[in-house]
Amino acid sequence: MAYALRRIGVTVLTIAASLVIFGLLWQLALTLMHVNSYVGKTPLDVWDYLFVDNPMTPDQTAADNRAHLFGLLWVTLGHAALGFVFGVGASVVVAIVFALARPIEFMFMPIAMLLRTVPLLAMAPVIYLVFGNGAVTAAFIGGVVVFFPLLVNLALGFRSVGAQAVDLVRVYGGSSWTVMRKVAIPTALPHFFASMRIAVPGAITGAMLYEWLFTFQGLGAGIVTAKSQSDYPQLWTIVVFITVVSIVLYTIATIVEAAVLAKWGPDAGRR
């Protein structure tokens, strides 16, 4: 428990310091590059867009801006959740099948890696043509981002099981599935959560790509609309907004990882 709390505290402090440094570098970059203030918005401009009413636009208050962005965010999070659940579920099932039947892994892992090299921007129109515009397409596009890193890391985690632990389960009459439940899954948990930290923001990226290409919903479509209307304060705010949300979700994934590994991971009880 102490290990989990210590890791959570370190993670939160690290991310808070990173946000401060990022804001300073953002401001410094705009200043050194002499970016036109009409196009390049500073952290203060983003703050004003979200929390300060502009007397030049009395019909568009900061509260309206926040409500608009949060409305877009919930749509994007819904699409990201579809891709995340689909990608994680599919990768876990496939990785377990690969671990239980190694010949299948040798046959299909190279194909999976070959598909991974195809740019998602090229795959998305094909997915759209096959499944149309809807939840299935959102799940597939987001799932592709999540699936491959998780599959590779889980397969690696299952292969890293110690031979002595496997022999011990076998001596007591355990089957391959018993080895998977009792040994392989706890051993693979660090690999699983390492990929989950990447998968969480990756699912959001996939969701925004889906929205940008095929819908007029969510933050992905909001970026397109803001750009077409030269609404640069909104454009920069959306980028910051989704970055902060991704960091928050990344932090939550890290907190869950620390708690789970402290209780069920391969080093549980040793710290």
Rank of each mutant, 00 (worst) to 15 (best):
P149V: 03
R7V: 13
P149A: 03
V93R: 05
Y49Q: 09
L24E: 00
V10F: 15
I15D: 02
F70W: 07
M109V: 02
I21W: 12
G134P: 10
V145S: 03
V75L: 14
P58N: 09
M107Y: 07
M33W: 13
G143I: 11
R66L: 13
A63R: 09
V144S: 06
A80K: 03
P119F: 04
M33A: 14
A135D: 14
A138T: 04
V145H: 04
L150C: 07
L73C: 04
A95V: 04
L121M: 15
V12F: 14
L44N: 14
L100G: 08
T57N: 11
V85K: 00
T14L: 10
L100D: 06
T31F: 14
P110N: 10
L77D: 03
R66K: 07
N36L: 08
I111K: 03
G9T: 09
F131N: 11
A99T: 15
V52H: 05
W47S: 07
N133Y: 08
L13Q: 01
V130D: 02
L24F: 07
F108L: 15
A81V: 11
N133D: 11
F22G: 10
T57G: 06
Q60H: 10
P58C: 07
I96S: 12
T57P: 11
I104L: 15
R102Q: 14
I21V: 14
T137Y: 00
T61R: 00
L72P: 00
V20C: 09
L25R: 14
A135I: 09
Y49A: 12
